[in-house]
Amino acid sequence: MSPLPAPDSVEDLEIALLLEGLFQRYHYDFRRYARASIKRRLVQAREQMGYATLSALQDAVLHDPGMLPRLLGYLTVQVSEMFRDPSYFRALRETVLPHLRTYPSLKVWVAGCSHGEEVYSLAILFREEGLYDRTLFYATDINPEALRIAEAGVYPLDRVRTFTENHQKSGGRSSLSDYYTADYGRAVFDKSLRSRVVFSDHSLVTDAVFAEMQLISCRNVMIYFDRALQDRAIGLFRDALPRNGFLGLGAKESLRFSAHADAFGEFVREEKIYRKRAA
């Protein structure tokens, strides 16, 4: 990895040292995240955790591993919803799943799964289309607390109205209420939806490909990476996909400037769904 640019201020130096410390001490690598975004999140963490400087925050985190999960909550983005961008899921339903239906077995990777909304959305979609029982889903994230929440499958009940509207707009063939029970202000999603889901810690920054996938969905994750890290992630996706495998990105993400762009062709342009070309 090439050296980081020289800092423009004391605060920038503190950020560089804190990120290097996190990597050396805990092996979490945020050094190639988009600097403006990571700076904003670290400043927010410093203020809300009650430290006068980022150096003081660094000292506390490096000496107290118990503080790491709290800091990770600021550094990793955990904002999502079920069937977010319904047209994306409609495009999967109408144009991608007809191709996946020809496979006897399927593997789907949700990279950066956050609190699990997207993997549950895909599980419901695949169940509605008759593909769930032949599919293994991998839901990965670098934040252990996010993975714990994802595996529990419990969300505030006041979010379910949005989830339901999104599901209907995505072309849902059932009622979302078929998949959860209401319990003391919470929506508890059915355990059967995660019977074929593997929740696992995985970093797009430092880890390698772990299986061949027919579909990878990594949405609204790479917008927080710098160009070099985006290329690394896309290279992982290229290596994980077989010929004609599918990759879905977020609305503000693109392969246009990637060194790996030639490995993919646009499949549904407006929904940022790509298909891996033949070698």
Rank of each mutant, 00 (worst) to 15 (best):
D12P: 02
L13K: 15
L17I: 08
L19M: 03
G21H: 07
Y26G: 08
Y28D: 05
R31E: 06
R35N: 06
A36F: 13
S37F: 07
S37R: 07
L42R: 09
V43E: 14
M49Y: 02
M49Q: 10
S55D: 15
A60G: 11
L62K: 14
P69K: 13
G73C: 07
S80G: 10
E81G: 04
M82I: 14
D85S: 05
F89E: 00
F89V: 02
R93W: 00
E94C: 10
T102K: 15
S105T: 11
K107T: 02
V110T: 09
A111F: 04
G116N: 12
G116K: 12
A123C: 07
R134Y: 05
I142V: 15
P144A: 03
E145H: 03
L147T: 01
A150T: 06
D158P: 01
T162D: 15
T162M: 12
E165V: 15
K169A: 09
S177F: 05
D178M: 09
K191W: 10
K191P: 01
R196Y: 10
S200P: 00
L204K: 06
E212H: 12
N220G: 05
Q230E: 04
D231G: 07
P242C: 14
G245Y: 10
G248Y: 00
L249W: 03
A251I: 02
A259Q: 05
A261F: 08
F264Q: 14
